[in-house]
Design a protein around this nucleic acid. Structure first.
Lengths: 338, 338
DNA sequence: TTGTAGGCGTTATCAT
DNA sequence: ATGATAACGCCTACAA
């Protein structure tokens, strides 16, 4: 790097000269790729330190044809659920010295495409993508998978032969429905489902499950946002309902609804029961704490990690779906045994 | 990229052969770095398309000695304020075809160091860092600035000759204090300041300004988190206060306080007035909407952009502080003229 | 306008 | 155990 004035880049050649050895030896000393005498290794390392040598990963990548880098494309960094997933993926891969580059599609298909192209150009070893849109992301995801092992996370583009890691929404909503049957008098507290829209696989699946099991529930469909939760709650109150059970397709929706409900003078869970979905990131942004369904993020990131591992070694990646069972999390916004 | 089985990397040499031209011509055709006949350019581009050529940015970077890449280090991706800043920085640089790589320090000094090292190794053209800790980040920030143009954003490590872009906290808190003097009867609604801790420059500056101007205010100091906001509000209520003005050092703190206050049966702003700081990202996670002080993010990211521009061309970067004046945003959580 | 060729920094192969 | 060297993909100075 010679961005700073008067600073010449220090390369292994400089280190080699300083330590009076060959560049090959320097490389081996610094990476530990071959055994060598301790004395020599120390001398080389000392020279490197003295000269302020920093490895140039660009040169290494060109030579090795791999970068130890994963590209992660998420729809929106401002959505705390996604940024939370980003954090967790980074952390998991960091454990094995794989750098995760995070790019936001900014909810824009073109930006998403550019992010994928940039990652491919950077020779990332694999790409993990949370598709921004069920249909329009097809091209971006397809392109990624054409060149490197690619995994869809949290949502998938249907009909694409690209592995998917996500949560089993039927089981998750099943937990909610069980809870309603067991603990809630749905005559007195009628169920309203606050959906996350039909433009993502997760949104659709959650809606389908709920409408299937509770044909009498009132369904309001919107998007995965706090604003939508507020609006939906407003509609509920404007309908004259004084009590009810609000089942949201995501915590962020539940939070919006809860804030509107509480601010309007109703109590949670006494008047309205509120149930979320995800328990990731935003869930601690709630008071009273939110009853929800927890996505097993650790398991999912582990699965992604092992899929990537396999994909980058074998070079093959079967187009399987890994669906993880979410867990019921009983908290304060809903009545229950404990 | 030859990560996929049976897929050989397509290079400009392949394209050159296919189009029956030289590699130089291919390079020129694809980058547009030199004028050439339209017919030939089209032929080359067509060949590239046909073969599925993808530029290898690693090769390009090694040759050009620059990457058109900015490294952004933030303390925590799960904090919506920071992820929001990340989003905005990415968006701004995306406008000029500069990729932004986002790395989370995960609130850990060692991880922060590694992120910086990784960025340096990747030969990023510049680094923007929001230091995780006022003291412990010194080494990481210092190292970054030793090799590439580096800018501190939002917080700074004192005594380091590295430019800083941030908000003028004195002016910001000044807005709040003006508001209190003008609109709030602080006898009836005593002021409680909910601080963000003393381990970051922004936290300290905000506390200092408030305690200076309002020596009688009750000061509770904690951290920049929702949880702390809740805890602080609990303390306030436990003190027996039935009315008050809660001035928070950040929106996220204000939100935590508000959720506790409202859930405890008090009304905002009737019983408690709540005022935040930042108006970034999280601010729409509130109902009633939060009166706050807006950081001029657009101006700040523009400034960062132009500093980086200058730094990467001149190679020099003066250690200046660019302090931007925040703006008063009157909303519902506080009483006011409109 | 187009082609030739060298080199960016690193590592793996082949000698020694 | 260590050294010499070619090659990764690209761009650009120089030549034609």
């Amino acid at each position: 790097v010679q961005k700073k004035p008067g600073l010449r880049t220090v390369t292994i050649l400089d280190v080699a000269r300083h330590a009076k050895v060959s560049t090959a030896t320097v490389s081996r000393a610094l990476t530990g790729s071959r055994p060598m005498s301790d004395e020599l290794r120390d001398r080389v390392k000392e020279s490197a330190r003295e000269l302020g040598y920093q490895v140039n990963l660009v040169g290494r990548a060109l030579r090795q044809q791999r970068t130890s880098t994963l590209g992660l494309v998420i729809p929106d960094l401002e959505n705390p659920f996604f940024s939370s997933l980003a954090q967790r993926v980074s952390r998991r891969f960091g454990q094995t010295q794989v750098d995760v580059l995070v790019a936001s599609a900014d909810n824009d298909i073109l930006t998403e495409r550019r992010a994928v192209e940039s990652f491919l150009g950077r020779q990332v070893d694999a790409i993990v993508v949370i598709p921004s849109d069920e249909l329009d992301s097809r091209k971006a995801v397809g392109m990624a998978s054409e060149y490197v092992p690619t995994i869809q996370f949290d949502r998938f583009v249907p009909g694409l032969a690209v592995p998917f890691v996500g949560v089993d929404n039927a089981i998750g909503m099943g937990h909610v429905i069980d809870h309603l049957e067991r603990e809630v008098d749905t005559e007195r507290f009628p169920v309203v489902f606050l959906g996350g829209g039909q433009s993502s696989s997760s949104g659709r699946e959650r809606t389908v499950t709920v409408t299937g099991a509770l044909p009498d529930a009132w369904v309001l469909d919107g998007g995965f946002s706090f604003d939508w939760g507020q609006q939906a709650a407003r509609k509920v109150l404007e309908s004259g309902l004084k009590r009810g059970t609000l089942v949201a397709a995501a915590d962020i929706i539940a939070l919006g609804a809860m804030s509107f409900i509480v601010t309007s003078g109703f109590r949670v869970p006494d008047d309205f029961r509120i149930i979320g979905f995800d328990d990731v990131g935003v869930s601690h942004l709630a008071f009273p704490t939110l009853t929800t369904v927890r996505q097993p993020i650790t398991d999912m990131t582990n699965e992604i990690h092992s899929l990537v591992q396999r994909g980058t070694t074998d070079g093959s990646l079967k187009a399987t779906s890994a669906l993880f069972a979410p867990e019921w999390v009983m908290r304060q916004s809903s009545p229950g045994a404990n």
